[in-house]
Computed example of a mutant assay.
Amino acid sequence: MDIALWIAAGLLALVALTGGFTKTFIPKEKLEHHEGAAWTRTASRAFVKTLGVLELLAAIGLILPAVTDVAPVMVPVTAVCWIALMVGAMITHGRLGQLKLVAVNLAYVALALFIAIGRFGPESFTA
């Protein structure tokens, strides 16, 4: 179970790192032309960058606390925060009729829920 949780956290951290890097470092004007980022057309540049930074922090929060054994409880806390972020993403993509992206976000929610339940419960780092 511990290995499965590490794999899930690694995959989700990779997703968060990719999305965070994209939103933080690729100009909003360039993002607006991609169908998956159509929501950026009506969002401010600051909002897009803020989401990017939050995703980068999520990537760090899913791995670093456990690896360094400094506040490892932040791993499941980060997973819960990721769930909230993905619920917002599902609402946004749903309003735009992007049901495939809603399904992808739902898969990310499932991974984060697995991490949160596992790390708050039976495979807690403090147990």
Score class of each variant (00 low, 15 high):
Ile3Pro: 00
Ala4Lys: 09
Leu5Gly: 10
Trp6Pro: 00
Ile7Ser: 02
Ala8Tyr: 06
Ala9Lys: 03
Val15Asn: 06
Thr18Pro: 00
Thr18His: 07
Lys28Asp: 05
Lys30Asn: 09
His33Ala: 14
His34Ala: 13
Glu35Lys: 13
Gly36Met: 08
Ala37Leu: 14
Ala38Gln: 10
Ala38Leu: 11
Trp39Asp: 14
Thr40Cys: 09
Ser44Thr: 15
Val48Lys: 05
Lys49Glu: 05
Lys49Met: 07
Gly52Arg: 07
Val53Lys: 03
Leu54Lys: 07
Leu54Gly: 02
Glu55Gln: 15
Ile60Cys: 12
Leu64Thr: 11
Leu64Val: 15
Pro65Phe: 07
Pro65Lys: 10
Pro65Asp: 09
Ala66Val: 00
Val67Cys: 01
Thr68Val: 08
Asp69Ile: 00
Val73Trp: 15
Val77Asp: 09
Val77Tyr: 11
Val80His: 11
Trp82Asp: 07
Trp82Arg: 03
Trp82His: 11
Ala84Asn: 05
Ala84Trp: 13
Leu85Glu: 10
Met86Asp: 09
Ala89Met: 11
Ile91Gly: 03
Ile91Pro: 04
Ile91Asn: 10
Gly94Asn: 02
Leu96Asn: 02
Leu96Glu: 07
Gly97Gln: 04
Gln98Trp: 03
Lys100His: 08
Val102Asn: 07
Ala103Phe: 09
Asn105Trp: 01
Leu106Asn: 03
Tyr108Gln: 08
Tyr108Met: 14
Leu111Phe: 15
Leu113Asn: 04
Phe114Arg: 09
Ile117Trp: 13
Gly118Thr: 05
Gly118Pro: 04
Arg119Glu: 10
Phe120Val: 08
Glu123Gly: 00
Glu123His: 15
Thr126Pro: 00
